[in-house]
Amino acid sequence: MLNVRSPLPKSVVILGATSGVARYIADQFARLGYAVGLAGRNMEELDRLAVDIRTRYTVSCHTFYFDALAFEGHGAFPVQCEEAFGELPGGVVLCFGFMADQADAQADFAIARRTLDTNLTGAISILEPFAAAFEARKAGFIAALTSVAGDRGRKANYIYGASKGGLTVYLQGLRNRLHASGVQVTTIKPGFMDTPMTYGMKLPGPLVASPEAAAKAMVKAVTGRKNVVYVSCFWRYIMYIIKSIPEWQFKKMNL
């Protein structure tokens, strides 16, 4: 049987485009000739990044005001993108996220809530409308940055971990649902990257990926229609070991 699919537009929307690695993801797509949409709250920065992409590559680049916590506007967002690109974009990559200090999140529920609202509720709220639109078109890709922190809860960052773990499970289900309509869902689990989020932290150098290299691996996974990818790839093995430790032992550990 022939698998008849409408040709996928070579365009992508980056949600949370001013965050850490997002700029490099946008750059990698532009390098491959994708038209790029940069979405976020800081319009001054978005415009700066868009000008950069247009100067480096001869691709079009749009900017969109987007707030992950302004759920009510999310339903109309894919249409807004469609108007700017002239058609529904080929795919969407979710890069936004909020990470607070674990102690602060424990002490102040507002911070814990913001973590969950941004990383999980906000993600579901914006990805559902895209999922519906791509499902109707029977083509598209959805990728999202979760975290290795979502693979197993640890006392050092379990509230952030819970939000990312929730997102990971959500993406699993979404992938299962959209498979029938030919829409690819890619779960990206970054480890440490050399971005403002980790700048100034004491981390073991060899475990920290440059954002350029990380973005390259991520975009390769997305265009290669992978399901789950760890960046850098060795995190798959580190997390496999961490997940294999029995709970009675794990609860005593300081990881």
Binding site: R48, D52, T55, Y57
Partner: peptide
């Protein structure tokens, strides 16, 4: 960030942190 490039004159305007490698690349 790069800011603009004029292919007629070859003049590139960019921020100070742009590397020569990035210019060659683009």
């Amino acid at each position: 960030c790069m800011i603009q490039f004029d292919p007629e004159t070859g003049v590139l305007e960019c921020e100070g942190g742009v590397s020569l490698a990035e210019i060659l690349d683009a």
